[in-house]
Nucleic acid binder design. Structure first.
Length: 91
DNA sequence: TAGTTGACCGGAA
DNA sequence: ATTCCGGCCAACT
């Protein structure tokens, strides 16, 4: 299993209302510190079965999104029950 | 095979 | 509070 597919699997497993950081995902995929690689993968992933909008920066910032931009991403999270505090996500 | 590319991260100026 | 810079790692060409 390639790293990218592990990542996709993990992201697929994130429940509604929950979020994971790029770092956490990379760590869970078996490549600690590969947060940047996760971003590279996500950018080129257009699989709708993968809720990539539930992946945020370790700092709590929402990050980017290729299907409507960061704002839309934040909207989705908000509608899923994720709490925001000062433009940041509460984990 | 080697070089380029990011939806990142953390520290420094 | 900003902006900048180097390091980091896997995928892609």
């Amino acid at each position: 299993m390639q790293f990218k597919y592990k990542v996709l699997d993990i992201v697929r497993g994130i429940k509604s209302g929950q979020v994971m950081t790029y770092k956490s995902v990379a760590d869970a995929a078996g490549a600690p510190g590969a947060s940047r690689a996760v971003g590279t993968i996500m950018k080129n992933n257009y699989d709708t079965t993968v809720p990539c909008h539930r992946v945020i920066c370790s700092s709590g910032l929402v990050g980017e999104y290729n299907r409507g931009g960061p704002i839309y991403k934040a909207e989705i999270l908000k509608s899923e029950g994720v709490i925001f505090s000062k433009k940041k996500v509460v984990i």
